[in-house]
Simulated assay, not measured.
Amino acid sequence: MPSPLTHDDPRAIGPYRPVARLGTGGMGTVYLARTAGGRTVALKTMHARIASDPAFRTRFRLETDAARVVGERYGAGVVAADVRAETPWLATEYVLGPPLDEAVELCGPLPEATVRALGAALCGALGQLHASDVVHRDLKPSNVLVTAYGPKVIDFGIARAAGDEHLTRVGVAVGTPAFMSPEQAAGQEHSAAGDVFALAGLLVFAAAGHPPFGHGQAADLLYRVQYAEPDLTGVPDALVPVLAQCLDKNPFRRPTTGRLAAQLHDGTGEFADHLPDALLADIGHRATEVWQFTPRRLPAPADAPDTAATAAPARWTRRRLLFTGAG
């Protein structure tokens, strides 16, 4: 959910005005932002401390390219981007729907019909990526947004071309341990079949309320992903053999996204028809909440350096900054 801006968050990024924070991570911060005309977007920026690193800039560019590949049907549509800016940024549509982990927290384990429709739609998203030789590599509940029209896959920060090892080192596991493929956990090549493994883990979470290899320290999770059998407790009986095949340790025995989609759902009905009432109500609430949010900026801590003053345009006086810094 949106949170207030901090005192040192930028007042403008390209043509966009940040109005709230949506989240922050190792690569950058995501803002709820608006244009002068009122269009609302999710605006991802790179942290200034890494913006001068060519490797991080390349990764940000590839993330932008992958978001364009998946498109607005299966992802947050790209509105604009400037990967060459001093602080690179990417503006996408603001998706009106909760992340899957929040949906499960709200509703509990989702009905089988919901899981099947969700899985089939995500097969379409991954199939579109794989057709362009791109693998996501970090498919997990927080990276799937559930809307009334279908799920949208986001956060392509570690996506890359299949077979490309330039941005990672062989022998180093990159991703989220609870939803990694065994080959990814071992630091080996993560192919399209690895995304299928992660998708199955995500669907186990949606259907049963827990990831297939449990919780715990990263090292324990990486071991269980590679050597333990998945815990399918709570998964509907009809889904168990389908998901178990996707969670096979051998990537060559996993189904393709096209085959998996056919096993999950016949494509009939609107996606919203398969969603629980509580989830539909939450989606509707978010659609109105985004316009009710009042922009707020937290004041600088008393002992913080006056970073706003040093970053401000020369025409702004220090006195004016002191009176507007908490606005």
Rank of each mutant, 00 (worst) to 15 (best):
H274N: 04
G216H: 08
I158P: 02
Y16M: 11
G258S: 07
G194R: 07
I158M: 02
G119T: 05
D306L: 12
A218M: 01
A117Y: 02
G23S: 04
M46Y: 13
A200Y: 11
P276E: 10
A125Y: 02
W291F: 15
G269T: 02
A173C: 07
A66P: 14
R34E: 15
V242I: 15
M27W: 05
D231P: 00
Q217C: 00
P98H: 02
A148E: 14
A117T: 04
G194Y: 13
A326G: 07
F252Y: 05
A261N: 03
V79F: 12
E270D: 15
G194L: 09
E270V: 00
R253L: 15
D53F: 10
D248S: 15
A281C: 00
D306F: 15
T168S: 12
L264Q: 11
E189S: 11
L203A: 06
V240K: 12
T147Q: 01
A238W: 03
R319N: 02
H130A: 00
D164P: 12
P109S: 12
G77P: 02
V70Q: 01
A159W: 04
T256Q: 10
R259F: 03
V172I: 13
P151V: 02
P236L: 06
V30G: 01
W89V: 10
L221M: 09
R254G: 02
R59A: 14
D273A: 15
F179D: 01
R21F: 01
